[in-house]
Design a protein around this nucleic acid. Structure first.
Lengths: 227, 227
DNA sequence: GCGCATAAATGAGCGTAGTCATTAATGAGT
DNA sequence: ACTCATTAATGACTACGCTCATTTATGCGC
């Protein structure tokens, strides 16, 4: 009531109008409803109607806050990926050799997908194949970029401590980082591809990372010589 | 008419009943209609109604021959993948060093996707994320398995000619092969991820393959020692 | 407070992949 | 040739994601 206009700076926003607050409230409710339903029943089994009901809004309203059902998924799980990357970066900083360091990064992401594999698979799918005009997908891809940069950074450090440096080396590092993400990506999609039924994903990924990192290191000398 | 029963062996099938022939005919028409429409307008832009009309059957009939629209896509492009793999295997046999050999294999698949990238992206999507109870998807994944085996085989040859052999080596080869497919896969999905706008996919893939193969070779000695 | 411009909320409606009760065709037995 | 069981073909219908004309709420100038 006494939220006098001269107190609100339109930037400090301690008291905004009813309107803006109610919108943020709806945004939150929709987000929470989607997150809960996806988590408990899986992306594909949840209808937009249901999300709307749980958030106590009309269907049309859901689509004022998210341009598609997929966008809701991206919105929710980008947060998880963000956390996983942060965790991974911290773990990677501790690890000694480059293989362990890179492995720590991707294992963190792999672990974050332990619960609700079906929904993680859907997230993967939307991240890779969603529509290009999709705000939150772009944000998700930016996170992937961050992950790759973090990996590339560890590789660059390793190269430097092996006495190698320079722009071509960094490019090779980015390349290896991208391959690491590709391996992770396929593994996460894995449940649906039924890849290696018997294999332990953690060990499989570790093995692939080991090969890729060693491959990067093995490429270093010739990189210097041939460029 | 004169398609006497004693002539038809039910296995040689030179003359089957009208029924079976008309079914095969419809199957062919539906397949051809789908292939043509996907090629000329892209998977997502084609409706099942359209496919049905072009094949001169009712919509319901389409779904008697393919359990979903995605299945039609898989059906059509599995053939392309089959051809690409065969081409790749031939090219790989000629190449001298293992990097070139493996590269030849995957480049063949990459090239086969040159025309109609949108539909290839959709094929990739359905292969990786399609429903598990899907005959033609399983067939597609089997082809992927073949590709991986072909790659693994080249790697095993390389290892042998480096004086290394044994079951652990084969496992590492399979692992590297899987990574190679992961890289290819991500690159094919690439157009939609807007990965590296400026990069040449052919060179990018070659670079990744180089790293992976060298990584495999670098892992060999330690494989012997540590196992 | 009052009226008005602007913006948000709504839910019936739309397009499309996929279903299923009904109809049509086939061929084996007589 | 006729009957009838079996199986394919059909298209109206459903489910679901999403849209958009209409309705409702908000805040601002008076």
């Amino acid at each position: 009531m006494v939220g006098l206009p001269e107190y609100t700076d339109a930037k400090r926003t301690p008291f905004r109008g009813r309107r803006e607050r109610s919108m943020q409230d709806k945004q939150l409710r929709i987000f929470a409803a989607a997150a809960a339903l996806f988590a408990e029943r899986g992306f594909d089994a949840v209808g937009t109607q249901e999300i709307a009901e749980r958030a106590d809004v009309a269907v049309g309203t859901v689509f004022r806050y998210a341009s598609s059902k997929a966008e809701l998924l991206l919105m929710v799980y980008n947060g998880e990926l963000r956390d996983a990357i942060n965790t991974g970066v911290r773990a990677a900083a501790v690890a000694a050799d480059p293989v362990e360091s890179v492995n720590a990064l991707v294992q963190a992401v792999l672990e974050s997908s332990a619960c609700n594999p079906a929904t993680v698979v859907a997230y993967q799918r939307e991240l890779l194949f969603g529509s290009a005009t999709d705000e939150h997908r772009t944000a998700g891809l930016a996170l992937v970029g961050e992950l790759e940069d973090a990996i590339a950074s560890r590789l660059a450090t390793a190269a430097r401590s092996a006495g190698v440096d320079g722009e071509p080396v960094l490019r090779e590092g980015q390349r290896a980082a991208r391959t690491v993400f590709a391996a992770l990506s396929l593994l996460l999609a894995g449940p649906s591809t039924g890849a290696h039924p018997g294999a332990d994903p953690v060990e499989e990924l570790r093995g692939q990372v080991t090969q890729i990192v060693r491959g990067f290191l093995a490429t270093l000398p010739s990189t210097i010589e041939t460029y």
